[in-house]
Every structure is written in C-alpha cells, then in structure tokens.
Measured scan of single mutants.
Amino acid sequence: GKMTGIVKWFNADKGFGFITPDDGSKDVFVHFSAIQNDGYKSLDEGQKVSFTIESGAKGPAAGNVTSL
C-alpha cells in the first residue's frame, strides 16, 4: 500500500536519492523515473512524499512517488 515519508536527499544530476519512511523502516532508494509529475522529475530534501515499495533489481525501491 501507500506509505509516506520525507526525502532524505536527492541528487538531481544523477537522478536518484533516498526517502526516509514515516514508519521508521529502512531508507528507500528512489529513482527519478518513479516520480509522478509532468514536469521536471526531481525531489527536494525534506519534502514530504507518498510512495509504494516496488522490488527492483537492486532491492526495494520507491514507486508512484507523489509530493504531498
């Protein structure tokens, strides 16, 4: 299901970062391709987001990332 969290950091040049889930679980990798907006796909440190957990090739990653 949907989770919420805070963006820990995001490197716009490399197109990835990490989200710290509100439930205290392990930080989740986020790739820019998972960001659900029409414009420039980037996130800001400290931004609140909702997301799902998808299993990627390198382990769990955030999917369906939407800013709240």
Rank of each mutant, 00 (worst) to 15 (best):
I19M: 02
D38A: 12
V49H: 00
D22K: 05
G17H: 00
E54Q: 13
D23Q: 09
A34L: 02
D27T: 04
G17C: 03
P60N: 08
D38C: 13
K58A: 08
D22S: 10
W9M: 08
A12H: 13
V30P: 01
D22M: 06
I6F: 09
G46P: 00
I19W: 00
T20S: 13
T20Q: 14
D22G: 05
A61C: 13
L68C: 10
A62E: 01
Q36D: 11
W9T: 09
P21N: 01
S42D: 08
F51K: 02
V30L: 08
G17E: 00
G59W: 05
T20E: 14
V65N: 01
S42E: 10
V65K: 00
D44T: 14
S25H: 10
S25F: 06
Y40E: 14
L68P: 06
D27H: 04
S55K: 14
F32E: 12
S25Q: 11
D44E: 13
V65E: 02
V28D: 02
V28W: 00
A34W: 01
F32D: 11
S25C: 09
D13R: 15
A12R: 14
D38R: 12
A12W: 07
D44Q: 14
Y40M: 12
V7G: 00
A12P: 14
M3K: 15
K58Q: 09
G63S: 12
V30K: 01
Q36S: 12
V30D: 02
V30R: 01
G63R: 15
E45K: 15
K2T: 11
G39T: 11
K41Q: 10
T4K: 14
G24V: 02
G24R: 08
D44K: 15
A34D: 08
T20N: 06
F18T: 04
F16R: 04
M3D: 05
L43F: 05
V7Q: 00
T4C: 07
I6C: 13
H31D: 05
S25L: 06
K14D: 09
F16H: 08
D13Q: 15
Y40C: 12
G63P: 02
A57Y: 10
G59E: 06
L68D: 05
F16K: 05
G59M: 05
S25V: 06
K14T: 05
F18V: 07
E54V: 15
A62I: 03
D13Y: 14
G56C: 10
G63A: 14
V28L: 12
T20A: 14
V30M: 06
V65Y: 01
P60E: 07
H31K: 05
G1I: 11
V65G: 01
S33G: 07
F51I: 00
Y40I: 11
D23A: 06
P60K: 07
D22C: 08
S55R: 13
G5V: 00
F51M: 04
A57G: 09
M3N: 11
D22P: 02
E54L: 14
V28I: 13
G56L: 08
V65P: 02
E54H: 14
I35P: 03
Q36C: 11
F51S: 02
S50C: 10
A34G: 07
F32Q: 12
S67Y: 08
K8N: 06
N11W: 05
G63I: 13
N37G: 15
A62F: 01
E45S: 15
E45F: 09
V7F: 02
S55N: 14
I6A: 13
E54F: 14
K14W: 13
G24N: 08
D13K: 15
S42Q: 12
F29W: 10
T20W: 04
A34F: 01
S25P: 06
G56T: 14
S55T: 12
E54T: 15
K41I: 04
T66N: 09
P60H: 09
G1M: 09
K26L: 07
F18N: 02
P21A: 04
L43E: 01
M3I: 12
Q47V: 09
N11P: 00
F29Y: 10
E54A: 11
V7H: 00
G1Q: 04
F16Q: 06
L43I: 07
I53H: 06
V28P: 01
N37S: 15
F29E: 05
G46E: 03
Q36W: 04
H31Q: 06
Q36M: 14
G46A: 04
T52P: 00
I6H: 12
G24A: 08
S42H: 10
V7K: 01
Q47W: 04
F16T: 05
I35E: 03
T52D: 13
Q36E: 13
I35Q: 04
D22W: 03
I35N: 04
Q36A: 13
S55E: 12
F18R: 05
K48L: 10
K26T: 13
K8I: 00
F29R: 06
K2W: 07
I6G: 03
V49L: 03
A57S: 13
S25N: 07
F16M: 08
